[in-house]
């Protein structure tokens, strides 16, 4: 790989009380690529993401951002570096419109007053940049949007801030076929614009459709981080369910390099 990872974790350990959830996890995310993070329920995907987002502090390990070691002690730190997480529940306010949601907590002001015009302009520009043309009005309440449109708004909210890494937690889990295709297209466009995208998904079709790399977690250990083009569908399923697949994966609890 010619480019350096924009975000890199090394040797991450994380325990909740007596339960160790992450063991010596290494994880790299590259700009312009979609990295799929897969693993069975309880493998530690969400915990890993929350560590990246600064919600959980990790017990030991190193966090590098753009080659420099950083200390992330809260969601604000992660956001200020340009790491945005879109959670499964999207965290949108139904009673606010699209622009208001996109700028929630970071409203632009002109003196004492909210600068609605600038916010609307920036929101329109961002949606246009993502080639989103499916919303009727930016002043529409989010409650009147479809599932795919809500996902789109949540993603647009994440990229509005010149973010460098966008992490999507199962963005297609609740969507129909057409809407899933729409969102996956959007995910691909984000990467093509140069962002580093992390896609958490249980759906192998989605993973193989858009990702460049796949990182498989198995019981809190990173089983393998491989290029999507180098592996098959069934190899990934084996990595998820057994932690190893032939040469790939964990050998006697030790990670083998792909």
């Amino acid at each position: 790989m010619s480019t350096a990872p924009v975000l890199e974790l090394r040797g991450i350990d994380k325990s909740f009380g007596p339960v160790q959830v992450l063991h010596d996890v290494a994880f790299s995310v590259y700009p312009g690529e979609v990295t799929a993070l897969v693993g069975d329920n309880g493998a530690g995907k969400s915990t890993l993401v929350k560590c990246i987002g600064g919600i959980h502090p990790f017990d030991s390990g190193e966090y590098y951002f753009e080659g420099k070691q950083v200390h992330v002690s809260g969601p604000r730190d992660a956001a200020s570096m340009g790491v945005e997480i879109v959670y499964q529940d999207l965290a949108l306010c139904d009673n606010l419109d699209i622009v208001q949601n996109m700028f929630l907590g970071r409203e632009r002001k002109r003196g004492l007053v909210l600068d609605e015009d600038t916010m609307e302009e920036m929101a329109a520009k961002t949606l246009l940049g993502l080639s989103v043309r499916t919303v009727k009005s930016l002043r529409q309440h989010v409650s009147s949007l479809s599932g795919g449109q809500r996902q789109t708004v949540a993603i647009a909210k994440a990229v509005l801030w010149n973010s460098k890494v966008v992490i999507l937690d199962e963005p297609t889990a609740a969507l129909g076929v057409a809407q899933t295709a729409q969102v996956l297209e959007l995910v691909r466009r984000l990467a093509d614009k140069g962002l580093a995208v992390v896609l958490i998904s249980h759906n192998m079709n989605d993973v193989f459709a858009v990702s460049d790399r796949i990182a498989a977690l198995y019981l809190g250990r990173m089983a393998a981080q491989v290029k999507t083009s180098d592996v098959t569908h069934s190899q990934i399923v084996e990595l998820i369910t057994a932690g190893r697949s032939g040469e790939l994966g964990l050998q006697n609890g030790k990670e083998a390099t792909a």
């Binding site: 529940d89 965290a91 949108l92 009673n95 929630l104």
Partner: peptide, 23 residues
Amino acid sequence: RTRFGRHIYAVGGNAEAARRAGI
């Protein structure tokens, strides 16, 4: 017209989303 007012609506609409947005 003010940020405070916007945040009142946000907390009423989805307090968890508002909290995550740093409100």
